[in-house]
């Protein structure tokens, strides 16, 4: 599924709002003003609303159900999305490992934050990379450190 859009240059806060929303959805960026997501009921609805919002701010946007010209293109886009999520999972794993030596209160706060971060990444993870398991393990290990310290 594709969203083709144009947003007025000013005010830039509107552009940033839309960029943030697209980032949160984990879109693949195919070009200037063109992003892709795997099509399902939820992504369809999310892109529809963003298209609507762009229209309300004076831009233009269309949503397409598209078929890639060949399978290699599709794989390349999926691979790019997988790599983007893998980097996010690695960052979570690193923070979890670093927090093992932090003070107890700080550790508990980090656990909460990383668990929320894992949920956020999971929602935009359409092609789970192997790093997901490592990140989940690292956060679970941190939970055990805290429980062990009781």
């Amino acid at each position: 599924m594709l969203l083709a859009y144009r947003i007025p240059r000013q005010p830039s806060t509107l552009r940033i709002t839309i960029w943030r929303k697209l980032d949160r959805l984990g879109v693949a960026r195919l070009g200037d003003g063109l992003v892709a997501l795997p099509a399902d009921a939820r992504t369809r609805e999310q892109l529809d609303w963003i298209a609507e919002e762009i229209g309300e701010m004076g831009g233009s946007a269309t949503v397409w159900l598209a078929v890639p010209g060949n399978a290699a293109q599709e794989r390349a886009i999926a691979e790019e999305m997988r790599r983007a999520r893998a980097a996010e999972y690695r960052a979570v794993a690193e923070q979890a490992e670093a927090a093992a030596s932090a003070r107890p209160g700080e550790r508990s706060r980090t656990i909460k934050r990383l668990q929320a971060e894992l949920r956020r990444i999971g929602r935009r993870d359409y092609f789970p990379p192997i790093e997901r398991e490592a990140a989940q393990r690292a956060v679970r290990a941190l939970v055990r450190v805290v429980e062990g310290a009781g």
């Binding site: 609507e52 919002e53 309300e56």
Partner: peptide, 11 residues
Amino acid sequence: MRGAELSHHGG
């Protein structure tokens, strides 16, 4: 629904 008054508006 897209285009309806009673719908998503301005976030």
